[in-house]
Design a protein around this nucleic acid. Sequence first.
DNA 1: AAGCTCTGCTTTTTT
DNA 2: AGCAGAGCTT
Length: 648
Amino acid sequence: MEFNSEQLAAAEHRDGHALVLAGAGTGKTRTIIGRAAYLMKQGVNPKRILMLTFTRRASREMLDRLRKWSGSDVSGIMAGTFHHFCLYIMRRMPKEFKLPDTAVIDRDDQQQLMKLVRANYREKGEVFPQAGQLINYCSYARNTNQPAKSYLEKFTELEPEVIGKVLKVFRDYEARKRDNGYLDYDDILFIFAKQLHEGKAIGDRVRGMYDHILVDEMQDTNPLQWLILDGLRDPAKLFCVGDDAQSIYAFRGADFRNVHSFGRRIPNSTVLKLEENYRSTQEILDLANWLLNSSSLPYDKHLRAHRGKGLMPGLLDFENEFDEAEWIANDLIERHENGTKWEDHMIITRTAYACRTLEATLVEKKVPYVFVGGTSLLQAAHVKDLFALIRAAASHQDELAWVRFLTLWPKIGDTTALRLIQNIRSGYDVKAALAVLKQLLEKRPEIPAAVETMLKLWNRPDAAIKQAEKILKPLLKEKYPDNWNRRARDFKLLQKLASRHRSMLAFIEAYTLDPVSSTQAEREETDDAVILITAHSAKGTEAPVCYVIRVEPGMYPHIRSLGDKSQEEEERRVLYVAMTRAENELVLTRCNVENRRGVMYGGHWGKHSPGGTDYFLRDMPPSLVDTDIANYSPDPFSDYDIIRPMQR
DNA sequence: AAGCTCTGCTTTTTT
DNA sequence: AGCAGAGCTT
């Protein structure tokens, strides 16, 4: 593995805490891996190293590359996301953390639970935040470590009476979560951080476990995660890597000033810089640099390409998204026919929704692709239905699972289900609960029988899934009449994934924290595929050829962020991240939005703010891009011999 | 009273 | 695809 002098200085930094400010493509990952390899070479026990990354995918890749490059056994290193790490430690010390039997719930479950609570407070016709919004508020306040009350007063426009009610809803929600034995994503961080700081003995014990803590994507850490890092350091040394220009998770409470204040907040720390870009050609960086420098924020970034000059980025206009999708698919096919691999191409989208047309076109034209980001396999409605049955068998306290499972059956709606559940939960354990259920549903023995079947197959996850599918099939076929075959395929996939786990609960927990998108899972069968990815998921990745689609007004910045200066700036960074993924070729495409329904509000793009930016590329110097589609193969008519009308 | 069906509306990003 | 609400059925 080769390093330049900046990278080497960072990787071999001695003594004290360090922050490495690394621009896009400057070898951030390389440096953090180099750091780990250096430490091990110096004789540090891998077990004393903790690597925190932003996604599980990133940590897997990092360990893979470290294993290959260092040639040593890296299995001792603890590597994962903040959530994984905290949960892992808490599960190892359940008594200390006062963590009884708990199940991790995902966002969707949180929302369902919130909906149940909300219904008890909202009066008919009253304007009250939706369940999803309530979860957002609650989560944001906790991740930024501020009381819900002051957060709601300062950062929302809710009326005081509504705020009072919302706070009551929050309290109820917390209580209901506890009764059900649920841990949401925020609880995992919160309980860990609290004990780390307030439980003296636990804090010392956890602090004693590691000597070196390596943190990737530091700019995306939020105040709660900062508290965790702060509680873990000393004697352990922090080695954090980040880039303020790539901070795109403010909506999750991330604060890139965590990066700016690092030196001030941590005594005896060093700030190092990586400035040479190894990924892209200069033309691509010129465009990215222009984008950042047209901001009013002083990013002070000027990426220099080590590789020198290359091709101009393209900016191609299309009449509508069908033409755009068609052109991209044809371009991909032609490139593939010329001998490049599918996987060398990445298509970056702002939202999962915005690439639906493209996805359909790729399927139609038989271009293999994987989608990264967006709805995962476990969030698909039919998969949740199946898991509801399994979870119901796991715990008679699991309210959400029982509601979902019971309402699958005809003639059982919310009301009946909730009434049944009240009785079930009074039972001592699942067996007692089942006895009660059998009595209440005397005429429908198949319902409790389904749960009993699951209990019998408890230690054989794949068999349990197979049986669950068999039992629910007639019900689900009714519920999802249109695309049953596609959904049935997901169950087969699920069975396969489950067979790698010993217990059902371990399987569910692993995939709650590490959601696999269904196409991503299929990827294990097809290894060469075009990568279709959201800009957020694309951070940390790269590809020789990148298409950034739908770079049009209303998308960058996204219409929902217009009117809020700091949100608009975050959108600029999202586009910056998207552009800087490209190694050799960058193609921006956009559609004519003039006539599209739903984008224009009263002649404005959303709430247009004075002095704000309604579209980033509006004032782009034409010299930065090539807009001539003829320079980009293929010619859309190349397959046909067409008649060109005479000029008159 | 509870369940079911139809219609119209909206669609950010993720551990 | 999912949600809310209206209105119809059991």
